[in-house]
């Protein structure tokens, strides 16, 4: 089943769009930041994420805000797969590649707990997750963007749609984020 790399994006071509994402928007980091370099403190990333979430929730409600976060993550996952993840012939190579990329870019420590490619079900863990590690305990998981991100990666790699749910999160006192992944 992991044979074709049939990434597809459902975004429609729309001439009226102002912010349609393309990898070019990441910019030329070497040229743009010769002194400061490509890194920025995690606080800044989280500041942006959580205020954005705040405003989205105020304006559209919790459910819609989560949905927007999930979809953004999914689009990011697809783009990330296309631009960063090395060509992978099989699941093992894909896992290796994701593990390396997430480690090298400081996103998190990616680990597989279970994989059943036939059934299309997986359990992935991300330790030291960029979004939630170190956050105070809450009564809910927070890595909605990561759920979408993993769904996007799987979708781009396999060509099938996936549902991803975070079952454990740093914020629920679990010290690691655990995601169940299921083919639709």
């Amino acid at each position: 089943m992991f044979i074709a790399r049939q990434a597809y994006i459902m975004t429609m071509i729309d001439d009226d769009r102002k912010y349609e994402f393309s990898w070019d928007l990441i910019g030329d980091l070497e040229m743009g930041r010769p002194n400061l370099g490509p890194n920025v403190r995690l606080e800044v990333y989280r500041l942006m994420q959580y205020v954005l979430r705040d405003v989205l929730e105020q304006r559209y409600g919790t459910e819609e805000a989560d949905s927007i976060f999930y979809d953004s993550g999914r689009l990011a996952g697809i783009k990330f797969f296309q631009n960063v993840i090395e060509d992978a012939e099989d699941l093992s190579a894909f896992v290796n590649s994701v593990q390396n990329a997430l480690r090298d870019l400081g996103i998190g420590i990616f680990r597989v707990e279970k994989s059943d490619p036939e059934d299309g079900s997986f359990v992935f863990c991300v330790f030291e997750d960029v979004d939630c590690s170190g956050l105070p305990d809450l009564d809910h998981t927070v890595c909605t963007y990561d759920e979408g991100f993993i769904a996007g990666l799987m979708e781009a790699f396999t060509g099938s749609g996936y549902d991803v749910k975070e079952t454990d999160c740093w914020c629920t006192g679990d010290r690691t984020c655990r995601f169940t992944v299921k083919r639709r």
Binding site: E113, S115, W170, D174, T176
Partner: peptide, 15 residues
């Protein structure tokens, strides 16, 4: 959380 961490690591290593 620590237990889960340990469990996740063990599951990963088993995998």
């Amino acid at each position: 959380g620590l237990l889960k961490n340990l469990q996740a690591n063990l599951l990963h290593v088993t995998w």
